[in-house]
C-alpha cells in the first residue's frame, strides 16, 4: 500500500482529527521528488506524529512513509534506532526516571526500584490499565536537582523514595 490517499483513510479510522493534523503537517513540509532530501524531514515528521498519536502504530508509519516517498522498512529502521520513538502504546502518564550520571550518584537506582515496586511494573513497561508507563531517560539537563523524575512535562527535583506516592497521586 504505497498510496497516501489510502493510507490516510486507514489512519482516519484511528482518529479523523489526528489524521488530518498529521497530514496538514506533512503537507507544510517542502517535500520534493528527491527521496534523499525528503528523508531529511523523516525524524521531525515522526516527532510530530508521536506528539499527535502518543506512539507510532504501523498505520502512522505507513502514512509517513507514503507521504515522504520512503519505504516502510526505512521508516521502521529509524524508529527502532532512536529510543525516543516507540511503536507501542504508552500510558497516559509517562513516568521518566533520569538515570544520567548526576542522578545515578544521587541514588536514581533506588527510585527505579521504588517506582517499580509501587506501580508493579518494570522499567520499560506500561501498566495494564494504560495509566502509567515507567521509563528511564538519560539526563534532562536539570542535574542540579538530581535525582530527577519527569512525569509527562513536569519535572520533579531532589526526589526521594518517600515522594513516590505523592508523585503518583499528582497524576489524576
Amino acid at each position: 500500500m504505497s498510496c497516501p490517499i489510502k493510507s490516510k483513510a486507514e489512519l482516519a479510522k484511528l482518529s479523523p482529527e489526528k489524521a488530518e493534523e498529521l497530514d496538514a503537517y506533512l503537507t507544510s513540509l517542502p517535500l520534493t521528488e528527491d527521496r534523499e532530501r525528503n528523508r531529511g524531514f523523516l525524524i521531525q515528521s515522526l516527532h510530530k506524529a508521536q506528539e499527535i498519536f502518543t506512539y507510532l502504530p504501523s498505520v502512522v508509519q505507513i502514512h509517513v512513509a507514503n507521504r515522504l516517498g520512503l519505504h516502510l522498512a526505512e521508516v521502521y529502521g529509524v524508529i527502532s534506532f532512536y529510543s525516543y520513538f516507540t511503536d507501542k502504546p504508552v500510558g497516559r502518564y509517562k513516568i521518566n526516571i533520569c538515570t544520567g550520571t548526576a542522578c545515578f550518584v544521587k541514588g536514581a537506582d533506588k527510585l527505579v526500584e521504588e517506582f517499580q515496586r509501587y506501580l508493579g511494573i518494570k522499567l520499560g513497561e506500561t501498566g495494564t490499565d494504560g495509566k502509567f508507563s515507567l521509563t528511564g531517560l538519560r539526563c534532562v539537563g536539570a542535574c542540579s536537582m538530581a535525582p530527577v523524575v519527569m512525569v509527562n512535562d513536569r519535572v520533579y527535583g531532589n526526589v526521594t523514595t518517600k515522594m513516590v506516592p505523592e508523585i503518583i497521586s499528582d497524576c489524576k
Binding site: E36, N38, R39, G40, F41, L42, I43, Q44, L46, H47, G77, V78, F81, Y82, S83, Y84, F85, L137, R138
Partner: peptide
C-alpha cells in the same frame, strides 16, 4: 533538526546521518 534520543548521534558522522534522516 532534532535528535531522538541516541547518544551516538553526538559523534559527528553519526550526527550527519541523523540530519539526513537515517539511522545515526
Amino acid at each position: 533538526k532534532y535528535g531522538a534520543g541516541a547518544f551516538v548521534c553526538g559523534e559527528e558522522t553519526a550526527l550527519i546521518h541523523s540530519v539526513e534522516g537515517k539511522r545515526g
